[in-house]
């Protein structure tokens, strides 16, 4: 991997690629979701983009790659290669604070911070979901919410209900 500092052109292309909206959470950009790992100029007119999936089986990754290609093509880059990288694994901690704000604004409770500092796979002994912490209702702000279903509209969300305003809502679950 080339470790040289990004050139101004690479910075600009990264900003462009990062501005692509997520296909399933269009209120977020790929940059805010934290899935864009890097944009590199391989040669004149040749750009490589590194993208990491949220979940291993996330079906949106193909659309993300196609959208990035389109945006960079439109900017005049003839050859765009989007590479999927798994390591280090994506975590919900990679979602920016602006991204979290937008999620909540759209009625999706943002993920809580994960138990960072733990070794990889610490979940094996600690349990994957810190259910003891309250998830705040994105509608009314109440912390009295309960889990309806551990899985919801996409792999990355769980379905909850607010006990105060009775509204169901999606929660971006911690990963």
């Amino acid at each position: 991997m080339v470790t040289a500092a990004p050139t101004p052109l690479e910075d600009r292309l990264r900003e462009l690629a990062g501005s692509v909206p997520d296909p399933e959470l269009p209120m977020l950009t790929l940059d805010e979701l934290g899935v864009l790992r890097g944009v590199r100029l391989l040669g004149p007119g040749r750009v490589e983009v590194e993208l990491t999936p949220t979940y291993t089986g996330c079906p949106a990754i193909g659309t993300m790659a196609a959208d990035i290609e389109r945006v960079l093509h439109d900017d005049g880059v003839p050859e765009v290669t989007v590479r999927t990288v798994l390591s280090p694994p994506w975590t919900t901690d990679a979602i920016s604070s602006e991204g979290r704000r937008k999620l909540a604004e759209s009625g999706i409770a943002p993920p809580r911070p994960t138990r960072d500092g733990g070794p990889p796979g610490a979940a094996a002994s600690d349990g994957p979901v810190p259910v003891e912490l309250a998830v705040r209702c994105p509608q009314c702000g109440s912390t009295a919410t309960s889990l309806l279903s551990r899985f919801s509209s996409t792999a990355c969300k769980a379905l909850r209900r607010c006990e105060s305003c009775r509204e169901p809502f999606d929660h971006f679950k911690e990963l």
Partner: peptide, 21 residues
């Protein structure tokens, strides 16, 4: 196998929790 395993272990922990519940 390490890159996939590091990612999958988090997903699988959730599957296991679902089965346990």
């Amino acid at each position: 196998f390490a890159p996939l395993a590091a990612k999958a272990v988090k997903e699988v922990a959730y599957h296991r929790d679902h089965a346990e519940q």
